[in-house]
C-alpha cells in the first residue's frame, strides 16, 4: 500500500529562559497545531524545553553549498571587525 506523508516540520526548542531557540530536529504533522503538540511529545519529553517553534520545512529558504564561497568568504578578511585586531597598551584594563 502506498502512502503519502503529512508535511514535514522543523522543530526549534528553547532549552530554558535566556537562551535562543535551537534546531532540534523534524517531524511530520498534518498542520501547525498538531506539529507543535507532536514536537512537545517528541523533543521535550525529558524536560528539554520551555518553548517550541515549528516551521514548515518547505517554507525555509536556505543558502546552498555552491553559494558558500561568495556568501561567506568575503567575511573572512575583515579582521578589523574583531577586537583582537587592535593593539592595547600594556596595563590598560576594561577595554
Amino acid at each position: 500500500m502506498s502512502t503519502r506523508d503529512w508535511p514535514l516540520w522543523e522543530v526549534f526548542v528553547r532549552a530554558r529562559r535566556g537562551l535562543s531557540h535551537v534546531h532540534s530536529g523534524s517531524l511530520h504533522a498534518p498542520d501547525a497545531e498538531m506539529a507543535l503538540r507532536n514536537a512537545r511529545d517528541l523533543y521535550t519529553r525529558r524536560g528539554e524545553g520551555v518553548s517550541i517553534w515549528v516551521v514548515r520545512a518547505s517554507d525555509i529558504e536556505a543558502s546552498t553549498p555552491d553559494e558558500r564561497d561568495p556568501f561567506f568568504d568575503p567575511a573572512a578578511d575583515k579582521i578589523y571587525r574583531h577586537p583582537t585586531f587592535y593593539e592595547v597598551p600594556e596595563g590598560v584594563e576594561h577595554l
Binding site: 502506498s2 502512502t3 503519502r4 506523508d5 530536529g25 523534524s26 517531524l27 517528541l42 519529553r45
Partner: peptide, 27 residues
C-alpha cells in the same frame, strides 16, 4: 518503548535530509 518510537522518528528525519520521503521508506 516510547523512546524507541522517538528514536525511529529522529532517524527517519535524518534519512529525509537525503531527499527521500518517510512514506517511501515505510513502504
Amino acid at each position: 518503548v516510547q523512546d524507541e518510537a522517538g528514536h525511529g522518528l529522529y532517524l527517519y528525519a535524518a534519512a529525509e535530509t537525503l531527499g527521500v520521503d518517510r512514506a517511501d521508506l515505510v513502504d
